[in-house]
Nucleic acid binder design. Sequence first.
DNA 1: CTTGACTATGTCTGTTCTGACATAGTGATG
DNA 2: CATCACTATGTCAGAACAGACATAGTCAAG
Lengths: 188, 188
Amino acid sequence: MISKLGYAILAMLARQPSTGYELSARSRRPIGYFWSARHGQIYPELRKLLDAELVRFSAGPGPGPREKKVYSLTETGLEALHEWVLQDPAPAESGRDELLLKAYSIWTADPAGAQELFAGQVRRHQDRLAEYEADWELVESRHQDGPPPVSDPDFGSYATLRCGIDYECQRIAWLTWMCQQLAGHRPG
Amino acid sequence: MISKLGYAILAMLARQPSTGYELSARSRRPIGYFWSARHGQIYPELRKLLDAELVRFSAGPGPGPREKKVYSLTETGLEALHEWVLQDPAPAESGRDELLLKAYSIWTADPAGAQELFAGQVRRHQDRLAEYEADWELVESRHQDGPPPVSDPDFGSYATLRCGIDYECQRIAWLTWMCQQLAGHRPG
DNA sequence: CTTGACTATGTCTGTTCTGACATAGTGATG
DNA sequence: CATCACTATGTCAGAACAGACATAGTCAAG
């Protein structure tokens, strides 16, 4: 059985053959927007994918004591990705959000301090929104005549960035609303 | 060091003393909206919290071969929660979203099948939105004269539900947009 | 000429989390 | 009368994940 991380790696390799190092960099940005992994997880996973013959690599001299390996998908690997993409995800989708957990217990805290906490989060999400928007414009600049065609890898970026931007806007609005609620309820 | 799950449990116990079983039920709904845990995780965590003297319990006869234990916060436990709530969460916040991972690779798939996938998701999120809204009205009915005061546990529910409702609306809008994109690009 | 950042590969320990196993009483449905 | 869902507590194996350890070359800034 291929893990979700395995599919995340296949998804990245389908776009661009990469080394494990590059995969871990891409798993910070732009893939990190909705998936992340450290290299300590990626190298063992690449080994598993290799054993399952879903990826292959071509080796060359590397900067360190070991060889540099550029991985790419095999035909089986592309098929596995292709099949997985349309499968309905399990309804589990727990979603662990530390800030919401704090918000749930915010009644135990001092409103002024709470306002600070949420104001800080507004800034953090505004920064992220700016990143997403920069990436969005980059993708758009490659397709002046409307959105990218659905068979173009750029359509995947376009779609996920749209979601990310909408999400950040929603979250900023909620955080701002929280600040107002916390301010409004204080005397004065 | 208390884990995030530990704080989630403290947050629940601060509102209502509960058995481990009840905690796992509450961690499906309503806490499950932003945090979840199985009982296989909760019982060992309760033990840790007990050893740290953050919770206590009163035992009585249970339905199974073991005693039923109703847990509640100690003063130290409430203090620990109180302190944690205002701490700025680590910027890690990876966020793993399987559907976005699929969307990212949607260019490898057949648009008609993809549309089905996203349409199914629209239905799922509409159901969840309905749940949130029902809970929202429940909370509002307890506070006809405006929002609950910030020192009321209901304010925590109110705030997190507001976020959940906004999030579901945003996600439904995006999923619908995806369906349109996938439809618009097909010939005919 | 030293320090630090970047490229690049790997391992290892400990924590978190999932899913299954195990036990047992009550009450409802068929 | 059997089967199933619910209440209730726990354990255990294994997967997933974070963070540190380990190695080594290049290149830029101070």
